[in-house]
C-alpha cells in the first residue's frame, strides 16, 4: 500500500458517500445514470470474485464489501425505492450500455494476463470500469445543468483513478515484478474520459458559476 493508492481508495469512497448522501438526503436520483450504476455493480462483482477465497487484509475485504454493497444498494434504490425511482428519468438515460458489457467481455477474452476464469473476469472488470462512466457523462450533457452533489460525485469518481495512475508509476519504480499494463492503459483511458468534465468543472468553480456541460 502506498499513499497514492490510499488517496485513490479514499477518493473513491468519498465519491460513493457523496452519491449515497445525494440519494438518501434528497430522496432523489435526478441526474444520476442508473446504467452507470449497474455497470459499476457488474465491475465490482466481476473483479472481487476472490472476495471469499483470497484474504489480503481486513482493509481490502471491507472496502470490497463496501464497493459491492453500495453499488447494488444504489441500483436497488433507483429501481425499486418508491420515492427515489420516481425521480429517475429513463428518457434521458438512454445509453445502450449492454454493448459496453459485451464489447468489454469480448476484449477480455482476447486480451488478458492469463486465460483463466478469474483473470478473464478481472480484465473484463478493468475494461468495463474504464467506460462505465459514459452513460453518466452523456446524461449530464443531455440534462444541461448539474446539481452540486452529482457534480462532486463525478469529480471524485474521476479523480480516484488518477491517483491510481500515480500509484502504478510509484510501484513501477519500487517493485521489480511489475506488469500491469492492462490496468495502466485502461486507467489512462478511464481518466481521459473525464478530461472535458474536469475542464468544465474547473471553469464553473473558477467563475463560481453553475456547472454546465455543453450539449
Amino acid at each position: 500500500m502506498n499513499i497514492f493508492r490510499f488517496a485513490g481508495d479514499m477518493t473513491h469512497l468519498i465519491s460513493i458517500l457523496v452519491l449515497l448522501l445525494k440519494v438518501y438526503a434528497t430522496k432523489s436520483c435526478s441526474g444520476i445514470s442508473l446504467k452507470t450504476q449497474e455497470l459499476y455493480g457488474i465491475v465490482f462483482l466481476a473483479r472481487y470474485l476472490d472476495l471469499f477465497t483470497d484474504f489480503i487484509s481486513v482493509y481490502n475485504t471491507v472496502m470490497k464489501l463496501v464497493f459491492i454493497g453500495s453499488s447494488l444498494a444504489i441500483v436497488w434504490c433507483m429501481r425499486f425505492h418508491r420515492v427515489v425511482k420516481r425521480s429517475y428519468d429513463r428518457d434521458v438515460d438512454t445509453f445502450r450500455h449492454y454493448f459496453l458489457v459485451g464489447g468489454c467481455f469480448l476484449l477480455a477474452l482476447f486480451v488478458h494476463e492469463k486465460f483463466s476464469f478469474r483473470e478473464v473476469f478481472w480484465a473484463f472488470s478493468i475494461y468495463l470500469e474504464a467506460v462505465a462512466i459514459l452513460p453518466q457523462l452523456i446524461l449530464l450533457q443531455r440534462s444541461g445543468n448539474v446539481d452540486n452533489l452529482t457534480g462532486q460525485y463525478v469529480l471524485f469518481l474521476g479523480a480516484y483513478r488518477g491517483f491510481y495512475i500515480l500509484n502504478w508509476i510509484y510501484r513501477y519504480f519500487t517493485e521489480d515484478q511489475f506488469s500491469r499494463w492492462i490496468s495502466c492503459v485502461s486507467g489512462l483511458v478511464q481518466t481521459a474520459l473525464y478530461a472535458d468534465f474536469f475542464y468544465y468543472y474547473f471553469i464553473s468553480w473558477k467563475n463560481n458559476a453553475k456547472l454546465k456541460l455543453p450539449a
Partner: peptide
C-alpha cells in the same frame, strides 16, 4: 503468494 501480484489492489 497471490495468483497475480496486482490483485492486491481494489
Amino acid at each position: 503468494p497471490l495468483e497475480h501480484p496486482m490483485h492486491d489492489e481494489l
